[in-house]
Nucleic acid binder design. Structure first.
Lengths: 200, 200
DNA sequence: AAAGTAAGTAATCGATTACTTACTTTAAAG
DNA sequence: CTTTAAAGTAAGTAATCGATTACTTACTTT
């Protein structure tokens, strides 16, 4: 084994991507440090040159996800001409992100399920929280502009939005096919639009 | 330790309920046979007098869930006067079931995430499959009777239904409060009804 | 009362886990 | 070139996992 040495920051990034790739194939809580190292072509101990412990690895993963996902979502929102268009753009952007990184929702949900109060769990929780607040702002302006029904419950609308994506993820989890995600996304959003939109 | 001996079938039932109770508190894949036995007031080895291995325990749990959940769902369907009323009854029945047994959705999702092709995973998959087919039948008759819009995509409607419940579960997972489930359920279903119903 | 059986215990097994230690290699600066 | 700190290896560690063992208890049947 004569692998090239890489600078630490680059190795950390590769580690995060490896964990996400592994999470797409198996239960996130079953991902061992040995499996991560093997996939990277390293020995298990080498990981601890860059991370103090396993939780720090998971924490880096959650930070990676939070940055990338929220950045894309906010970008999609800014480029949309109206609140309803923004919701659709965020929806499709999110689905596209999940299709590219199928391990991400599994890691997120896996972290939220954990018992204690670990750092990665905390990050997962704030990510979902920020995501929900972002959606709520879009919905609020949509109601003011009359594009969305005034009678809708904003909290329920946010919940339905996130739940809808979760349903898509679960469906692809059952079929094991990622193509279904992008294919079904527009059809499902059409239903969601009907639920909240003011026009018929 | 002088615990009374129980007949096997009763012990198996208690084991299942214990696992579900534990799943409400921690990550299902972190539930050890030692933890199950401790909660039951038994030694770890005693479990293997009733189950050949750990997977058999999880399999019994999935069978328990499949029987109880589908039975209630079908009962709620039969008692409903119309397809739309049936969907609402199934929705609230499902939410009530989850509120009573918070560990159930976590176990289900946990099993679906597993890598290989274990028996409990197979059971979880067929349960979701049967559930979806049941919903699809309700939706089909609803479309025929004109209570639901003819233009809706049945697959998308089923996906949205299940995803909505998942969203509720995730929300209570974040807040850690079960009361929210029953409180939010009607509001969220009101949105869902708007998405698929023919009347305004 | 004797024999049989199901259900329990306590101890231990090999395998696997996250993490540590001692040593070696690489790469880049002086 | 030489030096040196970061990066990687190989071989450990203690702890924990599911599962098995030999044995005991409680209850039923003959």
């Amino acid at each position: 084994m004569s692998h090239k040495h890489l600078p630490g920051e680059e190795r950390r990034e590769l580690t995060v991507e490896t964990v996400i790739a592994l999470a797409a194939e198996q239960n996130p809580s079953d991902i061992t440090t040995a499996a991560i190292a093997r996939r990277m072509g390293l020995t298990q101990g080498a990981l601890f040159r860059h991370f103090p412990n396993k939780d720090a690895i998971l924490q880096a993963v959650m930070e990676w996800v939070a940055e990338r996902l929220m950045a894309r979502v906010e970008q999609a929102t800014a480029a949309a001409p109206s609140p309803l268009a923004a919701l659709e753009a965020v929806f499709l952007t999110h689905v596209d992100f999940v299709a590219r990184h199928p391990g991400v929702p599994r890691m997120l949900f896996g972290e939220l399920q954990r018992a204690g109060e670990s750092a990665p769990k905390q990050l997962a929780r704030t990510l979902v929280q920020h995501y929900g607040e972002h959606l709520q702002r879009i919905i609020a302006t949509g109601r003011q502009q009359g594009e969305l029904r005034a009678e809708i419950d904003p909290d329920a609308a946010v919940l339905l939005f996130i739940g809808t994506i979760q349903g898509l993820v679960m469906q692809s989890l059952l079929a094991g096919q990622l193509e279904n995600l992008r294919r079904d996304a527009p059809r499902v959003f059409a239903l969601y639009r009907r639920a909240i939109g003011s026009q018929l």
